[in-house]
């Protein structure tokens, strides 16, 4: 199960990078990043809010992780 997962994930990553690299989608110029620079377009949200929400879900559900590394565990799961 794990092995399949790892293999699948790696192939997806490679595929994704290949597509992105070949399609020439990296054509956005530095002065064209006004919209991308807006706070609503960042992947990192409010740190305290994300901390609470991830903590809640990891203590009430079987799955956790995925968006980063680090952070403390707790006796809640």
């Amino acid at each position: 199960m794990i092995k399949t997962g790892v293999r699948l994930a790696f192939s997806m990553l490679v595929c994704f990078m290949g597509i992105a690299g070949l399609s020439g989608c990296a054509s956005v110029q530095p002065w064209e990043k006004q919209n991308l620079a807006k706070p609503q377009m960042t992947f990192e949200g409010d740190k305290l809010e994300t901390g609470y929400i991830e903590h809640i879900y990891s203590s009430k559900e079987g799955a956790s992780g995925g968006s980063g590394v680090g952070g403390g565990g707790c006796g809640c799961n």
Binding site: K3, R7, F10, V14, G24, A26
Partner: peptide
């Protein structure tokens, strides 16, 4: 597993090279 992993890393490397070429 390690062989597969190496192959995949190889693939990833090629993809990265394509990027840098751009």
């Amino acid at each position: 597993m390690s062989l597969i992993r190496r192959k995949i890393l190889h693939g990833a490397t090629v993809a990265l090279m394509l990027f840098m070429g751009n």
